[in-house]
């Protein structure tokens, strides 16, 4: 696809109500923004979108900034009511997502309702005085 196998190249394919972005190369510190920009541009340009597919078959290394970008796209798609799909994930990407505990978050279907930033039970506990917790 490209002469620099490490440099991220994006190929965007439009369909009726979905967009597919093929990722070629590394998703890392230097070019993670590229993917976020492209995805956000697609989301903005096409309000009727229902699905965003990220084709990962040719994806190279993904570093923490790359994961940061995927999390950002996931957040934006959820806000827009669009479902994000990470297709053809290489084993390496799965390992990273598993290690960081983000596999379910990034691959699960979005919740039906709105996203509420709640940590169930924790807010109630946080309101409690901390004294009893610090006993030996």
């Amino acid at each position: 696809m490209t002469t620099h196998p490490n440099h991220l190249e994006l190929t965007t394919v439009d369909a009726q109500d979905s967009v597919r972005i093929e990722l070629h190369g590394d998703l890392d510190h230097d070019n993670a923004d590229l993917l976020v920009q492209e995805a956000v541009a697609q989301l903005t340009a096409r309000p009727a979108l229902t699905d965003l597919y990220l084709g990962c078959a040719d994806l190279g290394a993904v570093d923490s900034m790359g994961l940061c970008a995927l999390l950002m796209i996931s957040r934006r798609t959820t806000e827009a009511g669009v479902r994000m799909h990470l297709d053809d994930r290489p084993a390496r990407l799965d390992r990273l997502l598993t290690l960081t505990g983000t596999l379910d978050h990034l691959t699960a279907p979005p919740p039906a309702g709105s996203v509420t930033p709640s940590i169930t039970g924790e807010s109630a506990m946080a309101a409690r005085p901390t004294g009893p917790d610090s006993t030996t």
Binding site: L71, L99, T100, G101, T102, V115, T116, S118, I119
Partner: peptide, 14 residues
Amino acid sequence: THGTLIGAIPNVSA
């Protein structure tokens, strides 16, 4: 021990 990264997702578990 396994858990979720911190600071990006509303719900974390570990």
